[in-house]
Computed example of a mutant assay.
Amino acid sequence: MRVLHTADFHAGRNLRGYDRTPEIHEALIEIAALARSEKADAVLVSGDLFDTGNPSADAEAAVFDFFLRLRDAGIPGIVIAGNHDSSARLESVTGLLGWVGIQAVAQPTANPLDMVRSIETKGGETLTVGALPYLSERRLVKAADLMGGDTGAWRQKYREGMGFFLRRLGEGFRAGSVNMLMAHATMDGAVPSGSERTLQFDLTNQYTLSGLQLPAGAQYVALGHIHKPQQISEAPLACYPGSIIQLDFGEGGEKKQVNLIEVEAGRPARVHVLPLASGRELKTIRADLDNVEARIKALGDFDGLLKVVVRAPAGTALPGLKDRVLKLAPNTLAVDLEANQEDLALPELKREGLSLTQLYEQYYRERRGELPDDLRAAFKEADEAARAEEVA
């Protein structure tokens, strides 16, 4: 049996005002063609089909076109919701997706065995998949609180809650079938991309799973959520295929891929990496103020998307800098200012002891200037709401 594993499309991603959806659509066309040329028996998509819970029409068209291409090739698939997806929105189209051979598991059910899906391949083999969509850490911890216990051990509660689902999904594996697990989660030891969303990653993804919690009967664990391709466990074999294009500048230089798994019932799986060529390359260059133009000219015919970070004394205002850069490199999406290292030692630029709102003010000031009052109020309100939800 040949199973193609992919994840993290993020259709609808907007990077510094630039819509990446056409590139994502191109990558999805490439993946559908690979599924056909590699004679895949099934395709697994491990969450984050969309970048937001309310995607644009173009984003939906790109994803649904991908599923239609699989239908035209006679290749069935299974998808789960990720943390960027609206599970309710995906749930509403599960019936329609079923008509084109795509089984969607958007929300966890009271009986985890209801999340076990199976595909009968053209070769007469059976693929059984325990499909676990993204489970909100806060909701899972809150559910654990209702069952009593130590309210301070949040991480342990998350592991215990997820462990319950994983064990029950493993009970759905069948003898004589190829058995796999799908999940959208962060595993211990996973290495994230050097994303611009690193701060968000640190704050909201503090809950992780241990490889020891994965069902031993899984011949392959199809993971999603981490954008850097990597194998995370050997027994059972567990992999993140990563995002399908370089989604932000933190992923610049990463080679993107999908995984093709060859496997037979009761035998170890083998993973083959299929590189992807779609999507514009992202690059970040850092330069001192006096050599910005020389650094840009040295790029030659680079036709990807560019981020230019200019090192300058803290508090420096450089009107017209972005226009100068854009004149040299029209493919530049961002021109940021970065304080010199010696300035970072100044007390006013230190970060210890600062609140989240103060950190955001400092981040904004270092890159764009003074934080507008409406943005400060909105950020503070969101921070307070998140903290209230954690306490509730």
Rank of each mutant, 00 (worst) to 15 (best):
G217P: 06
E125Y: 04
D323C: 03
L166S: 11
A329M: 12
P215A: 06
L127K: 00
L181I: 14
M162Y: 15
G148M: 01
G124C: 12
A386H: 10
R376Q: 09
R167M: 05
V308C: 12
H25W: 04
R89F: 00
P192S: 06
G217V: 07
T208H: 14
Q257C: 13
P330N: 14
G279I: 01
L214P: 02
Q103K: 14
P112K: 10
T6L: 06
A185P: 00
A345Q: 14
L132R: 07
L276Q: 04
T208K: 14
G194T: 13
A287Y: 06
P229I: 01
A143F: 05
L274C: 09
Q219T: 06
K350W: 02
V335E: 07
D290M: 01
L326C: 13
P330E: 14
A81T: 10
P229H: 05
V45F: 08
S56W: 00
V45R: 04
A59P: 04
T208G: 01
F379P: 00
V93Q: 01
P76G: 03
T94K: 13
G353C: 09
T128H: 02
L326G: 11
A144L: 04
K39S: 10
G74N: 12
E352N: 14
N14D: 09
A269C: 05
C239Y: 08
F201I: 12
E338W: 06
L97M: 15
G176L: 03
R167I: 00
L344W: 13
G98S: 11
A62R: 03
R13S: 10
G47E: 11
S177E: 13
I102Q: 00
L282K: 01
T21K: 13
